[in-house]
Design a protein around this nucleic acid. Structure first.
Lengths: 354, 354
DNA sequence: TTGAAAGCGCTAACAC
DNA sequence: GTGTTAGCGCTTTCAA
């Protein structure tokens, strides 16, 4: 009593397996009466076509994939307002937004979406699993070893998301990190008259953080301010805890005269952590010091003061990823493209705009 | 030059296809030296094992699925605070939370997650697609015709989420709708001394909304208030727009003396819509009238006044769904279970707790 | 430890 | 319209 197959359905409805197959793949190519008979038998038997067998025979799966890292911030602080632990789970992460964007776009094109967060493994790794079950997939940068992608991308379309273009024959989408941070810094300098901005970055190998730093540098240059060679500080994980530490260490480090008048963080998590730390030390934001983030996570709108930041269009990123995959599926030989999605600035209270 | 297969790898590394297979399935059963040779050949060739072929041969996919309806509120109003359209996309939907919960739990168990939102179709429907590619899957109620589930669940584990138990041999998880609403109403009546609460429900066939209404009734009964037979009003889609309309119509309908002093909505979306409508009419919340929702969507914390509501543990729902699936995969004959997840109340400003 | 061979359930020519 | 017949690429006994 194993699962019924086309053979069972065919036998029960007195047709050939080819006809059964047709009923599912192309109903109109079968006489209505025959079709009903087949469908009837299928219900009675509890027949469900095997996606595997189908995929194997037709060499397509109708599924697109996404590999992403686990983006949750393990040491997020609970804000004063959000006393309920449950609420923190309601914060939307990058991955959630990308998934949403991809799922919708995929649906429009008739695909389902297979998702898997990174997990290391030998030959039988995450990617392998996803790669073997989809027609094409998107990868968030730093999720999958480049060498694996190198191999896999020879066999199916892969689009790289939000990182550097590690493999140049792949489609690739980034957000305008440098542009966004430049505009943000320019706003602080020009509109708020701040003169001693400090940028808190991430690790050197975080391309997003580095691009944002470049934007910061450009704004300094434009404004005739000293252009730092390096971020004032680098955080490893870019978490809230590290943002808090960074804020404190930056205040401690400097004598009053040279204390920065603006802290530009490479992401919102750090900026939020800094906000808490500054509050604890009685430093007022934005009166004593301005604080900005990057990403536009929902939390940035909930903290007090609300956080001035740059919104990343993550949902769009997901949608575009699907578009590129679908397009490449349609034409394997098209030129690889590299898209840059525009970002938009959210001027809020933490820079003095609120 | 089609994709390389085990045969290609086998030939190139001078072993049999069985050995190649073993290298991927059970590396330790192959001599280290042989293994390296195989792996080397695989890289050179750009070999990626076909999930389809694998699934077909082994009758398992290593994938769990989720079918959900599209939960986005098409006519959500932009709140005064959220002037930027982008921000609205950052609101986390049920589906996002369930997906997150399922993905994490699935990952822990070594599964990937296949997701697909409802879309209608003939024999080649959404479910069929998902069902054929997974080892088991969860379905949000009202997403898939019961008759389809009936058939499919004969062949693989299905767990029903957040609805009535349509098929009694299936595992099933609900949240404590009635309990939550009862507690909420009790709070309004006992702690805030409100005497004329009105419940705004959904369609009769929305089991969640009905369960919440039952909770409301119970609270009225307990308190010795008149127990309504029916919700004061029923909304079809339970959107913000309908919530706004409901609030207005309820105010218009009653003369001042019998105007309700509390509006309990069957979900947050409607409650938020009502908040906007009341503000437009100059009715103060909670001074003139209390408003509550149900669900605990992030927006409920962002609107002003903040919305008193009942939080649904959607992420847990996803996690539990995976647990049930995994358990059933381990033992097809276990008794079907029906879990009820506890909810928790969020007392906020819109009921006067602010 | 490795190989040979028989499927897994379906699709896709190609006949009829 | 419908049936026949090869595979699709892998796992899995069973032998060696």
């Amino acid at each position: 009593m194993s699962a019924p197959t086309v053979y069972d359905v065919a036998e029960r409805s007195g047709v050939s397996i080819a006809t059964v197959s047709r009923v599912y793949r192309n109903p109109d190519s079968v006489r209505a009466q025959t079709r009903e008979r087949v469908l009837g038998a299928a219900r009675e038997l509890g027949y469900v076509p095997s996606g595997n067998a189908r995929g194997l025979a037709s060499r397509t799966t109708g599924v697109l994939g996404l590999c992403f890292p686990d983006y949750s911030d393990p040491d997020a602080e609970t804000s004063a307002a959000a006393t309920d632990a449950d609420d923190d789970n309601a914060v939307m992460l990058y991955s959630d937004q990308i998934i949403r964007g991809m799922e919708r776009a995929a649906r429009r094109h008739g695909y389902a979406l297979l998702i898997a967060a990174s997990l290391d493994g030998g030959p039988e790794s995450l990617v392998a699993k996803v790669a073997g079950r989809v027609d094409g997939f998107a990868v968030l940068s730093q999720t999958v070893p480049t060498s694996d992608l190198e191999v896999i991308s020879r066999r199916l379309p892969v689009v790289m998301l939000a990182g550097p273009r590690e493999i140049d024959h792949l489609d690739h989408i980034v957000v305008a990190n440098a542009d966004g941070e430049r505009e943000l810094a320019r706003h602080l300098i020009q509109d708020h008259g701040l003169r001693r901005p400090a940028f808190v970055g991430g690790e050197v190998n975080s391309p997003d953080a580095e691009a944002r730093f470049r934007g910061f540098q450009e704004a300094c240059r434009e404004a005739g301010l000293p252009v730092p060679e390096e971020p004032a500080l680098r955080a490893g994980m870019m978490t809230q805890a590290e943002g808090a530490r960074a804020a404190e260490s930056l205040l401690d480090r400097a004598s009053d005269g040279e204390r920065p008048d603006a802290l530009l963080f490479a992401n919102d998590q750090m900026a939020v952590g800094a906000l808490y730390a500054l509050e604890r030390r009685g430093v007022r934001v934005p009166e004593d010091i301005a604080v900005t983030g990057f990403d536009g996570i929902p939390l940035s709108r909930i903290v007090r003061p609300t956080l001035t930041t740059v919104r990343q269009p993550m949902q769009q990123l997901g949608e575009q990823a699907v578009e590129l995959l679908v397009r490449r599926l349609g034409d394997r030989d098209r030129e690889p493209v590299s898209l840059e999605l525009p970002v938009s600035m959210a001027r809020r209270a933490s820079c003095g705009c609120g």
